[in-house]
Nucleic acid binder design. Structure first.
Lengths: 214, 214
DNA sequence: ACATTTCGATACGATCGAGTTTCGCAACGA
DNA sequence: TCGTTGCGAAACTCGATCGTATCGAAATGT
């Protein structure tokens, strides 16, 4: 009755097939990656593509949203690894990863859903925040914090805004780039340098920081 | 047979009701604003809400996408008006408008669709680019260009990247802000100052621009 | 061997929505 | 008055999908 390794109760009968479970989730992800919104996704189509009976799906998830939540959570886009060089180098590396992911079909559709079904599927959104957004945010935050500690970045920097500017700029390009050509290869570098350097002309007399005062 | 004002042919019979047309479009917009994706939107529901027969819809649009395209095109979110003050002031004003719109239910759902149905409904996306994206882009571009001409902004600025950073940062907040509270009231100002000033510490010896060299 | 549970397949009733047709009435020009 | 066209309402056919039930076979523990 007891599983020797885990100590949990082992129910009698034929065990559930992990292969089927994987096939179902893969099928769901594939269909999302092909552009289905959650609304268009049908259990029947998932079952057919996974080569699985509908029963096998309903035995595991009671509705579509639960399935999609699990499917998307199983997707774990890589968290950018930083080399620990200069802050500028690491920020470029970080944005380059975002850019590469933005061109990946699966990540792209995943992000589409995260952006648009925001209000309709709160569970899903929370999962997205936890597995994708927050880890990256922390990587970037600690990177910027390191820059401050080292004196490479200004100590009075608005970290939240800086993170939004860097990630948002890249997101803006990957979503709304005019023309269907690829994004420029040096985009990560250009974004990084623009935001690190700032837009103000160098010799306005005062250092830029003074402008902060109201 | 000829319409006196326009010179066009006036067909016989009862003319089409402009009121019905407006009611249909309003109903469609309402339902989109309530969170329906295009997939969930049904012609029957639109007809019912508009108090109109389905025939009246099919007589005008041959399918759902055409109707939605027209409906969304009829929506004309205001293009930010700039006061012509300092560049900093105008950028803040511009971003403040974006922020306000991000909290508006209709604009928000409109944007959701633009973000996610990107690939599935190309007509719709093109219309969105033309009526929303491009005009704003031009406002912001000319604003930054003016800053360069006046010497307030650096002459070697990467305008495309700067626009993406400003808009992207605000978009990032309006879409993915943690916590459900409202966005801070001074957000537009914080974004503007952070990006104008840049993130680099002031006294790294060299002016920031030198870092651009590879 | 036997009980139990899952498997894929298939069928089922129910619902929903698309798109078409029909109806009687309303609005227009001639 | 008459022909034409638009109107809303309703009925209709058709296909998709839902969620459930049932089947014989397969996989496990006892």
């Amino acid at each position: 009755m007891m599983n020797e390794q885990t100590g949990t109760v082992r129910s009698p009968g034929r065990p559930r097939s992990e292969k089927a479970e994987k096939a179902i989730i893969d099928a769901a992800i594939d269909m999302i990656a092909e552009g289905s919104g959650i609304g268009e996704l049908s259990i029947e189509a998932i079952a057919a593509r996974a080569g699985v009976g509908k029963t096998t799906i309903y035995r595991r998830w009671s509705n579509k949203e639960d399935l999609v939540v699990d499917a998307l959570a199983s997707l774990r886009p890589p968290i950018p690894e930083l080399a620990g060089g200069s802050v500028r180098e690491d920020v470029i590396r970080y944005l380059a990863v975002l850019q590469r992911e933005g061109n990946n079909r699966t990540t792209r559709c995943f992000m589409n859903i995260a952006l648009s079904e925001h209000d309709r599927y709160p569970h899903l959104m929370e999962r997205f925040r936890a597995t994708v957004l927050r880890p990256r945010r922390e990587v970037l935050r600690s990177l910027l914090q390191r820059g401050i500690d080292r004196g490479e970045l200004r100590a009075d920097m608005d970290i939240e805004v800086a993170m939004a500017a860097l990630s948002g700029a890249m997101m803006f390009f990957t979503k709304w780039h005019e023309g269907d050509g690829d994004l420029p290869a040096d985009l990560a570098q250009r974004i990084t340098d623009s935001i690190l350097t700032g837009l103000l002309a160098p010799n306005t007399g005062l250092g830029g920081a003074v402008l902060h005062g109201e």
